[in-house]
Write a protein that binds this DNA or RNA. Structure first.
Length: 501
RNA sequence: GGUCCUGUGGCCGAGUGGCUAGGCAGAGCUCUGCAAAAGCUUCCACAGCGGUUCGAAUCCGCUCGGGACCUCCA
């Protein structure tokens, strides 16, 4: 069974066929590092990380390119005013690259806490000014852009007229007609320079106060937002590559503009499959700066926000996101995240216990019915993922499997119920999926021999007390450890295990 | 105004016309010195009204509600 992905371009699920198997090129729009990432940003990066991981699980050799937008308007809130006052003091001035560095570091930190694999290439817009200028020159030469007062604009109308004839009208990705666009009287910079309201900037002339600026054939300025992705994707993935991903809110105009720019330059639609993740909402509304309802990742991890009842770990958030399908909206609430936290814990404990069991490979199944059920549940992992990455369904199967595992642990089900082969398959696939594909990791305190020794000592003291029916002492140990966040559990086999909360 | 998406039980969420989603929460039972955890059982559902069909949460229409994009936006 082959992988099917929902292609925004065709609005349907299509069989995924790489241009150059086993190689796959994937480009995902990264962050603008002018501020802190919030929960909404986590979704695409986790979603496409899982897609990246799954493609590798399928055996593809993937080049994953995710950019960092570090050019454009760079101002930090609250710092702009000071800047104007202390223009002469270099160190007190707003230094854009300082902001870029700060938020890039923070972003990388968050990505690693989520256990997202680093992309193969993470190019920056400022590192590719030359490529962007070359591309703009080419678009002008072909007659699809014009200069006005040191800025360059893309001629959308001309593009649309010419390329509609080739079946590639402007708006083909987001499914809209130019005529239908809302006729706005919006306050945008230098709007009057444009020949048409739909035209977008390829290069912007920098006003004197704009600090980020580069030389260009059209004077000092900075690149428009859309051109960087076209320049960097074609540089690293070629004129035509396999997958282009990003948030749904980027579909228009960002991706539409990318298509137009690249099509003019390379005469090809840049990507074959366009994948878009949906938004994270909060009380039904999109989480976004303009709605004033964002929860920053640092707040989420620390619990330091009036919206949050507690802190949520990176893995809880990752799991929360995997429990829904990436193309649907996902509603944030404390209740929902708390549910995810508990669910993940239950699943992970079953997984960890089972992964330590030694299995007799040659043993036969004493309960063929159960054996078959387990096999089906495990085999379906691939089927569900092949159906446009249905992570939620895989997790549902895993919960059914963890019930089976827990029953084996509690000896309600014989350990020989399934065959050795099935048991090994289960072990293998749980690991492959939970760790390699879903990218989940155990969050318990790192292995610490001293700590473990101390806890084992307490456990043995408690055991002695229990055997003397000194429940005062045994309960004291258990309760006070619980207050410290260490939970003791008396297991069926007479031993005691511990867990960090 | 245009283009779309969406409405599933207390909450979050899968659902390809016929077969249990799953998780969390609630109730009961088992296990336990007591817990915790786990297991078993159980309660609660497809916005409303029509239509198509032997059969619809799933297709069509209407009504009502929610949301996204058209502007920087993951």
């Amino acid at each position: 069974m082959s992988l099917k992905v929902y292609n925004s371009l065709s609005r349907q699920k299509e069989i995924f066929t790489p241009i150059n198997a086993p190689y796959v090129g994937m480009y995902v729009c990264g962050p603008t590092v002018s501020g802190e990432s919030h929960l909404g940003h986590a979704r695409p990066f986790i979603t496409f990380d899982v897609i990246y991981r799954y493609l590798m699980y399928l055996g593809y050799k993937v080049r994953y390119v995710r950019n960092i937008t570090d050019a454009g308007h760079f101002e930090e809130e609250g710092r702009e005013a000071e800047d104007k006052i202390s223009k002469k003091a270099v160190l007190e001035k707003l230094e854009p690259m300082e902001l870029v560095q700060k938020y890039t570091n923070l972003y990388h930190w968050a990505m690693s806490r989520f256990n997202n694999l680093p992309p193969s290439i993470e190019p920056t817009a400022t590192g590719h000014i030359v490529e962007q200028i070359e591309m703009i020159k080419k678009i002008i030469a072909d007659g699809y852009a014009y200069e006005a007062n040191g800025s360059v604009y893309f001629d959308v109308d001309r593009y649309n007229t010419d390329f509609s004839k080739l079946g590639k009208p402007y708006g083909m990705l987001s499914g809209r007609n130019l005529e239908d666009q809302l006729d706005t009287t919006r306050e945008l910079d230098n709007q009057e320079e444009k020949r048409d309201k739909n035209d977008f900037a390829l290069w912007k002339s920098a006003p004197p106060e704009h600090i980020m600026r580069w030389n260009s054939p059209w004077g000092e300025g900075f690149p428009g937002w859309h051109i960087e992705c076209s320049a960097m994707s074609s540089k690293y993935l070629g004129e035509e590559f396999d997958i282009h991903g990003g948030g749904m809110d980027l579909q228009f105009p960002h991706h539409e503009c990318e298509i137009a720019q690249s099509t003019v330059c390379n005469h090809k639609t840049p990507a074959r499959y366009w994948l878009h993740n949906n938004m994270i909402t909060i009380q039904g509304k999109k989480m976004g700066k303009s709605y004033n309802n964002v929860i920053k990742l640092t707040e989420l991890f620390s619990g330091d926000s009036p919206i949050l009842e507690q802190a949520y770990s990176p893995m809880t958030i990752r799991f929360f996101i995997l429990q829904s399908h990436y193309r649907g909206t996902l509603d944030f609430s404390n209740e929902a995240l708390q549910a995810s936290e508990k669910a993940l814990k239950r699943l992970w404990e079953a997984y960890e216990w089972y992964s330590k069991q030694s299995i007799n490979e040659g043993s036969a199944a004493s309960d063929p019915g159960l054996n078959e059920k387990v096999q089906k549940l495990v085999t379906e992992f691939d089927e569900f993922m092949n159906d446009d990455f249905s992570t939620a369904k895989v997790l549902a199967n895993m919960f059914e499997l963890s019930s089976v595992i827990n029953s084996i642990k509690d000896k309600h089900i014989s350990e020989n119920a399934m065959s050795g082969q099935t048991a090994l398959l289960l072990q293998k696939q749980l690991k492959a999926y939970l760790e390699d594909v879903f990218g989940l990791i155990g969050e318990r305190a790192s292995d610490n021999g001293q700590l473990d020794g101390i806890l084992q000592l307490l456990i043995s003291i408690r055991k002695d007390a229990k055997s003397k029916k000194d429940f005062m002492t045994s309960d004291k140990i258990r309760n006070e450890l619980a207050a410290l966040g260490v939970q003791l559990k008396d297991e069926k086999d007479g031993g005691t295990s511990y867990n960090f909360n």
